[in-house]
Design a protein around this nucleic acid. Sequence first.
RNA 1: GACCUUGUAGCUCAGCUGGUAGAGCAUUUGACUUUUAAUCAAAGGGUCUCGGGUUCGAAUCCCGACAAGGUCACCA
Length: 510
Amino acid sequence: MLSEQEIVRREALQKIRALGIDPYPAAKFEVTAYAADIKQHYSETVAADGTKQRLNYQDIAIAGRLMASREAGKAAFGEIQDSTGRIQIYIRRDEICPDADKSLYKELFLKLLDIGDFIGVKGYAFRTKMGEITVHVTEFKLLSKSLRPLPIVKKDAQGNVFDAFTDPELRYRQRYVDLTVNPAVREVFVKRTKLVQAMRQFFVEKGWLEVETPILQPIHGGAAARPFKTHHNSLDTALYMRIANELYLKRLIVGGFDGVFEFGKMFRNEGMDRTHNPEFTAMEIYVAYKDYIWMMEMVETCLERVAIAVNGTSDAMVGDRKISFKAPYIRLSMTDAILKYTGINIDALDEAGLRAVCKQLHIETDASMGKGKLIDAIFGEKVESHLIQPTYITDYPVEMSPLAKKHRTKAGFVERFELFVNGKEIANAYSELNDPIDQRERFEEQMRLAGRGDDEAMPLDEDFLRALEYGMPPTSGLGIGIDRLTMFLTNNVSIQEVLFFPQMKPEKGS
RNA sequence: GACCUUGUAGCUCAGCUGGUAGAGCAUUUGACUUUUAAUCAAAGGGUCUCGGGUUCGAAUCCCGACAAGGUCACCA
C-alpha cells in the first residue's frame, strides 16, 4: 500500500520518462566542486562603486541530493547536499528556458523534482543579497529519482531544530535515512574510521604486520564467552564464529613474526544492551620479546595519538566529564586499588578471609566462587566505577586469566592489566603465557570448570598447545574494544550509535 | 531474563472522565524574479502496531502478542 506521497513520486517518474528524460541515467556526471569547499573558499571583491567581481568557482559542477526548495515565481532557491554538506542553489526560469517553452523549469524543475532526488548542477558561485554563498544554476540534470519522502529536518535562525528524525528504531533500521538527514551521525562514523586508521598507522609505523585469521573456528578459544555455533556442510563438522582471535595470533608469533595485529569482528552469543552488540570489533596485537609493562607505555602513547587524530585534542568529553587521554596513565595493582577504595588490604587473605570481606561490604557471594572470583567481585562492586580517568589496573588473580603468564613476583597473580576509562574496561593485556606445561594445566582447570557447568570456560586447544611446545618467545598481547573506544571518543553512551547497522530484531512484514 | 515507559498521517507530536481523528512541517493546486523553518490562499492524506475482550459505542479501559527505549540482572 503506497502512501499518497509515494504515488505522487511514481507518477512524476512516469511523466519524466514521458518527457524523454531518463530518471536513472547511466553516464557519469563529472563533479568539479563540493559544497563545503565552495562555502569555505568562495571569494569576491567589491569595487568603490559597489560592483562585485567574483573570483572563483565560476564554472563548476556539483552533485547531490536536493534537500530543500523555495519557489518564488519565475525563480527558485534550493539546497543540494553532497558528501561535504549543503549549499544553496538559485535557478531562474528565463535562463533555463530562454525560449517560449518554459516546461523544463515549470514542469521538470518545479513539479517533477522532489526532495531527495539526486541532481547534477552546472553553474557559478555567487553571494546573494542575504549573504548566502549560492550556486547559480545554468544547467541541471536529474541523476536519480527518489520514490520515498525523506523526513525533513529544519532548523531556524536561532538553531532550533524542527521535526528532528529521532526515533531510534527508524534511525537504526534505516541508517541510510539517518545519515542523509542527520549530519552529526555521519560525523560519528567518520570519527570511527579516523580512529581505526590512526591506530593502524601507529602499528604499521612500528613495523608490525596486519594479518587476518579465521572467523570460522573448530574450537572457540581466547576468551570466556558463549559462541555462535554453525555447521559446515561438506566437512560435516561443527564450526564456531570466533569469540577472539588471540590463539591464532599467538600461533603467528610462534611462526616467527615479531608483531602481528588484527582488526576484526568478534561474535558473542550473549545478551544485548546499550554496550553489547552480538558482533563487535576488537583490535588484538601481539609483540614478541615484550612484557605487559612495556605494553602499558605502548597503549598510552597510541591512545593519546588516536584521540588527537579523532578530535584534534587528547581531551574527550564523556557525558559532562572531561577525560584526558594524554599519556601517561595511572597504574594501580588490583589489590592496591581495592585498598584505596575500601581501605581493606586483601593481600594476605585466604578464601575464607575474602568471603568475610565480601560479607562486610554487602557483596553477594556463592559457594562456587574461588579466591579469584571473590577478588574480582570486590573490585567490580567497589572500585570499577571510580576509575574515571584512564587507569591501568594490573596483576589479576590467576584463576581468571588462563592465558596470562604467572606474575614474576606475586604468587597467585598473573601479569595482566586492564585499562579503565569512565568506569568501563576498554583494553585488556597480558604478558602472554608461553610455558606449554603451565598452559595445559590452565586449560585442564578450565575443563574442570566446564564440567561443573560453566558454559563460558575455555575448551582445550591441542593444536595451540602443540604450537607453544615448539616454543613461543616471551610476548605481550593486547585487545582493545574498538566500539567502546569509539563511544568514548564520540561521547555516545549507546553502542548502536557507533555501529552503522546494530543488530535488531527482524522487522515486521519482512 | 525481570520490571518500567512508548507505539496515532511521510516526519515530529496533541488527542481530557470512552462519544464523528487533530496540528506543524511534508504532499497537491494556485500566486510570487534574491529566498533560507520563505510567505500567502485552498485541498487531499489515517488498518490510531497487531489480535482478542468489556461497552450501545474503544486511539482512549482490560488481556495477550510484536517492536523499540530505559533500569536492573547476566556478560567482558
